[in-house]
């Protein structure tokens, strides 16, 4: 791949928005991330609260998927393997760069435990963003993660003010059940990302058997 093709590839995906948005969110996280805001859900007594960093990390998590969108649409759909390889590398690079840098910033600004929880949440939201992007288009990758936020905030805490086992954005950093949920969502997203229509078609067990027997 030549430099100019790479430049065009990155330009079409408006890749500069990623670092800008992640940098801004990181700054905001360091400054106000630890602030507790009210979460309007009924608990036994008083009002549930949540720290601001919990939701800010979602914005970072969906960036790699959102920035896969390209205005060329169908023109790129029939591209050869080299193009897809570059796209996979671009996605992997974005994930490492954005999620990694935010985790480091959170670690320095809010502490190690918080950074690990943020990383776990971002991994889960990235999986949902990939799923959402494959279902509705990359520019709509934010849809399922945003819906998941409503579910997490409203049902993630029981009336005894305890986070339920699947609450991957709030359970303690060493909680394995929520880590499994986050890992599962990430794997699901990765599998859906990998399973483009032709892959699904060609790897369909029946077709595969027929093809091999030919």
């Amino acid at each position: 791949m030549s430099i100019e093709d790479l430049r065009t590839f990155l330009f079409l995906r408006r890749c500069w928005f990623g670092p800008v948005v992640v940098a801004l969110v990181s700054v905001v996280t360091v400054v106000v991330g630890h602030h507790e805001v009210a979460n309007p859900v009924p608990i036994a007594e008083g009002v549930a609260t949540l720290p601001v960093w919990r939701l800010l990390s979602l914005i970072v998590a969906i960036m790699p998927a959102v920035l896969l969108h390209s205005p060329l649409g169908e023109l790129e759909s029939a591209a050869v393997r080299e193009y897809w390889r570059v796209q996979h590398l671009y996605l992997a690079g974005s994930v490492v760069l954005y999620l990694g840098s935010f985790t480091v910033v959170a670690w320095l600004g809010l502490g190690g435990d918080t950074a690990l929880i943020a990383l776990r949440a971002m991994i889960a939201w990235l999986g949902l963003a990939l799923l959402s992007g494959r279902m509705f288009g990359w520019s709509r990758s934010w849809l399922l993660p945003l819906v998941s936020v409503a579910i997490l905030l409203f049902w993630g805490m029981d009336t005894g003010s305890t986070y339920v086992w699947w609450e991957f954005s709030a359970r303690p950093h060493d909680d394995w059940k929520s880590a499994v949920v986050a890992g599962g969502l990430a794997l699901l997203g990765a599998a859906i990302y990998w399973a483009r229509s032709w892959r699904r078609h060609l790897l369909h067990p029946l077709r595969r058997a027929r093809s091999l027997s030919r």
């Binding site: 928005f17 948005v21 979602l58 969906i62 520019s139 934010w142 945003l146 936020v149």
Partner: peptide
């Protein structure tokens, strides 16, 4: 896309 998530969150 960025506006949507920033507005929501």
């Amino acid at each position: 896309a960025i506006a949507a998530v920033v507005a929501g969150i």
